[in-house]
Design a protein around this nucleic acid. Sequence first.
RNA 1: GGAGGGAUGGCCGAGCGGUCUAAGGCGCACGCCUGGAGAGCGUGUUGGGGGCAACUCCUCGCGGGUUCGAAUCCCGCUCCCUCCGCCA
Length: 425
Amino acid sequence: MHDLRWLRENAAAFDRSLARRGLPPAAATILAVDEERRALETRLQEGQAERNRLSREIGERKRAGGDARELLDRVAALKDEVKAGEERLRELQARLESLLASYPAVLAEDVPDGPDERANRVVRVVGTPRRFAFAPKPHDELGARLGMSFEKAAKLSGARFVVLTGGLARLERAIAAFMLDLQTREHGYTEVAPPYLVRDEALFGTGQLPKFAQDLFRTDSGHWLIPTAEVPLTNLVAGEILAESQLPLRFVACTPCFRSEAGAAGKDTRGMIRQHQFTKVELVSVTTPEQSAAEHERMTRCAEEVLKRLELPYRVVLLCSGDTGFASTKTYDLEVWLPGQGVYREISSCSNCGDFQARRMQARFRPEGGKPPRFVHTLNGSGLAVGRTLIAVLENFQEEDGSIRLPGALVPYMDGIDRLEPEGR
RNA sequence: GGAGGGAUGGCCGAGCGGUCUAAGGCGCACGCCUGGAGAGCGUGUUGGGGGCAACUCCUCGCGGGUUCGAAUCCCGCUCCCUCCGCCA
């Protein structure tokens, strides 16, 4: 959702942002509808003012016991005209709003230009990939002897699901608990247990609807399964006018996430990299416009801290213009090193959405001093994707015999167990 | 699933055909008072648009209707709540 006032004065900047995302210009189209709407509104207003004045006069005259017939005739002529104008105005307004809702967020200035992920910029590399004395295996191979079954999952649910059993199920729970504790105890996030089914409005607010319906699962009842806890957490402030003193708000939730992966046929078909259902710990911040850039850095560090404590090598990548999501003005991805595949893979994505989502969901705050409300800024980031973290632990901490030595930070969450042993050994 | 009740400004809450430009309260802002704070007093305070401006329009859940005129009457929808039934 975009600010019309801003757009009028910054049409070129708007189109430049679209161009950087590889999209054709649109400001002129939007502004033409805006122009039409304003002209109509100005014209309509005269009629409305006249009607209101006459009606008031009729009331006065009737109360005084006078004859209002002549005034009634005059207002009758205005009536249809005004009504038609109001209808037309509503149409234009609706058209304008759906236009405004269909273009992605204006990118931050410091987002590098580029068409796709190859142009992303590595900001920092943290930790050194371990040197293996043997060929490290991918997680699905390791998992086969540890309680990871895609066959069982396929029987139940089809492709892109997994069943974890025993130590691996326990490990997933341990990782999630560790992350929640870190973010709540040390980083000041408030834990939330939100609904996993939401309505259209919530998904419109965060920007998944109406454009990306094909990526989502929908129930018979008309609800949608959340693709990320960003949706319920951010929409917590939808329609609110918060006090500036309440900001920043910081929420964390561990939820399952559901994605149809409609456009990903044939991609990442092996292993549990890309699933229809996965667990994720999500961070959401709501801030003032002045604070959001600093909060973005802070949030990214909060996500990075998880990787540091788990002793996982990673790098931070600033996404280029063509790779930055619809609702985001700027995004850092955290990519963890996966020795089994010899690549860095996305494990977190931290985005500053500016006021883009706030406008869609009417989330505002009242500045100190009783001034008019302003839109908040919203940010979200994974802290982290739990399934992919589990993968990273397996691949990075594997031993030649297929066992997994667990990072120290997780041991307390595993009741002291510091090793997963494969079956049939 | 059945039967009722409700939706008003940042919040609570009155209003049930014209001056509602929405009472009153809370909160907030500013001022007075004070050594300072509090209390008290006074003033202001829904939100969103249009217009160079004067000014004006919209906004009482949403949409439609009746009317010269709707927060108020009628119809539809959405959401919330209560009770009963069923069920974690």
